[in-house]
Design a binder for these strands. Structure first.
Lengths: 413, 413
DNA sequence: CTCTTTTTTTCGAGCCTCGAAAAAATACTG
DNA sequence: CAGTATTTTTTCGAGGCTCGAAAAAAAGAG
């Protein structure tokens, strides 16, 4: 069972609250922080002056005072960009990109490279990632804080501890120990997480009003991925990264899926499945390994233009997604949805079928009210998500603990 | 966002830890509590003497000292039975039962009554429940502590705030405001929760080793219910009680379900569906309103005896459950399962089909390792679950806060 | 220049937990 | 049977943390 609260935990948690409030709001004053955290002004004052002395926060320059009120003007607090930096790595099919990002979230240096991931050995793939990160860290060495975390967003299934890539469509190899290798090379904690979970994390920061406590990100790509936030927390498996929406069963013993099984949602709604239904017309045909975005766009154009196998392929895709969502909504009530990736550009064709299918299910009570949004470009979302993941762990696990370099003279007593 | 930790929260939380440790273990000593909570001996000593002074805990009588060790013997702490009492109410199809239970979990008085729930008005149904609780409270008035909570376990969907029964197969009426009526009548906080969630809660206390942080209770009855514990918490919807496993979609546009939709798991695996497949052979036949346990047992006997429509009916049921579990396990990794209710007596017939179906899904990687258990009698589980629910809220929300009657002379200072 | 208003800091009080030492309660030992 | 060893529980002072009230700081208003 969970452990009691020690006296020193108290300070750590309240420091974490303050840091989190500053990261969330833009330049909140001490008074605002006191209001949002419910702590007293004196506590906020003490904690924030500590954090400033430790070089974690800074007072904002009052370039343009929005005062207009009388009284002492509020002083905004900001994150000190040089307090630390982190590395965000995004590995997808045939593409690797990474960036060094400062503590305030600004990109310092970045790099993107094409790889033929499916033909590389496990060693070579990891080596490429390590090499890119090393280049970037060296480039960024002059400017800013030391790298304290590395976070990686990767297509595929990761373990619950965010250490390994258990399985991925981008390579034939299993159990790639990214975290161990990175930690060995760079000596900082590393997490490796499913890219759709990172997309969900990013959406939360992009639009905290719409994507708050409960929402769903669905990546419509070669496969179907999902990032699920329930009651304010990323929903992950107990053993793995979880939320493999694409492999829920749509039709028992149905169409052949890339995973070798039958009837998965992905086998109807993944790019390869749409292509297969539109161009071959055989649900049992072997799935293609890869497909360009243009292929999907041209099928979508044909589907919009006239009735035919293309339109039927999207109907089947929409239906599979809709019934899948309906089954999910039987388990935990509907939530706002974001469809991300190239498939989102064709979502207008699928949407009526998605809604029609949901309406046939237990979740369909509210099918009209369920709100969809689309975002075609998943790449920046993945990187932002990985970035936020890394920054938040720095906030919570390092700076909240107050083990940061403390200047000897910074004490009041 | 969550609120900062105030200084007084600290005490409240640590008191809650101590109470919880005593409820969980059997007569733990102060030393053992210190070990499990991670708090210091002095803190445990202070808190437990407070709790004893407040009449919440008591020192166990050392009738049979198991010492055998030298040194001062440990003094076990127990819950003081008269510190409070609670009422657990269980409402199911055509049956109502309730009990007054003391703070230590012993039943003081209980009553069970048959009703024709489907023919009663909403008013009459609520009135019956209120009347039974009033009788029991009056009976128990002489002995023990005042009633501080009422918890109700009911078949059907409740709202996320545990106030109302939104929908239920036991009545044609919707939105039955049980909590409001009870609170009005008895002036104590009331929660109304889905019976399967209470079954899960009960399993956790019956066998905390097997049913710990992640497990699933499935009620095989006229319908199919589920109680889901993930990462140590009951998994509920954001709007409703959630986990309506029975209404996940097994076959799109498939068999006619009691809910009016098609292809739900329940339409293959509920008692009425098994009976329909075995006796009528038409998936579209109107579902029966009720069915005796003996009907199911006789179909099970026939299925065990010879191949025929009965065996086929159970095959279809097992398959529906298996594919449904497979879809769930795509979302959150497999966990130990308990099958509860009359259907569990026939689970031996279904099990191979359940496993075969799971093996065809993404969750099937571990299909051999998934562990099933059965418990035919759901009634005591529902009551135990409701009881624990009520007792835990008394622990956490009332006694942890320390607003309990404090004797004036009980202070050390 | 003085008054008003608002933000931020300072200061003492009150809790809470902790570690060390003391007290309590029992078994072992000769 | 008295003294010693051992284990549990309580006591006590120290150190931290948050809080409220008051003071200080920093502006605009008149």
């Amino acid at each position: 069972m969970s452990v009691g609260i020690r006296h020193d935990d108290l300070r750590r948690r309240n420091r974490a609250m303050v840091i989190s409030a500053v990261r969330r709001a833009s330049q909140p004053s001490r008074t605002e922080i006191a209001a949002t955290t419910g702590l007293s002004h004196s506590t906020i004052s003490t904690i924030s002056s500590d954090l400033i002395a430790e070089g974690i926060l800074a007072e904002a320059k009052v370039s343009e005072p929005v005062s207009m009120k009388r009284g002492r003007p509020q002083v905004g607090l900001t994150l000190e960009p040089n307090a630390a930096s982190i590395v965000a790595v995004v590995l997808s099919l045939n593409s690797l990109s990474a960036a060094v990002i400062d503590y305030a979230g600004n990109t310092v240096v970045e790099e993107t490279k094409r790889l033929v991931t499916q033909k590389m050995t496990a060693e070579a793939l990891i080596d490429e990632c390590v090499a890119m990160v090393r280049r970037l860290i060296d480039d960024a060495a002059a400017s800013g804080g030391t790298v304290l975390r590395i976070a990686m967003a990767v297509q595929g299934i990761t373990d619950a501890g965010s250490r390994k890539l258990l399985w991925s469509p981008i390579t034939q190899h299993d159990d790639l120990p990214f975290a161990d290798r990175f930690e060995q090379e760079f000596g900082v904690p590393v997490s490796v997480e499913n890219d759709c979970n990172m997309i969900a994390e990013a959406l939360r920061w992009r639009d905290p009003v719409r994507y708050r406590d409960d929402f769903i990100a669905i990546l419509l790509s070669h496969g179907i991925g999902m990032g699920l936030v329930i009651k304010g927390e990323l929903f992950t498996g107990t053993q793995s990264s979880g939320a493999e929406f694409g492999h829920m069963v749509h039709r028992p013993d149905g169409a052949l899926c890339r995973c070798g099984r039958r009837g998965c949602i992905e086998a109807y709604a993944g790019n390869y499945a749409i292509w297969r239904n539109a161009r071959i017309g055989d649900e049992n045909a072997e799935p293609l390994a890869d497909l360009s975005d243009d292929d999907i766009r041209s099928i979508a154009d044909a589907a919009r233009d006239h009735d035919g196998p293309e339109r039927e392929a999207f109907r089947k895709a929409g239906e599979a997604i809709g019934f899948g969502l309906g089954s999910m909504f039987a388990l935990f009530d509907p939530a706002p949805l974001a469809f991300v990736g190239v498939g989102a550009t064709a979502f207008d064709i699928m949407e009526p079928h998605v809604r029609a299918a949901i309406a046939k299910t237990a979740g369909g009570l509210h099918s009209k009210a369920i709100s969809f949004d689309t975002e075609p470009n998943e790449v920046p979302l993945k990187r932002e998500g990985a970035m936020m993941r890394a920054l938040l762990t720095v906030d919570q696990e390092i700076f909240a603990a107050g083990t940061a370099p403390r200047r000897a003279d910074a004490d009041v007593a």
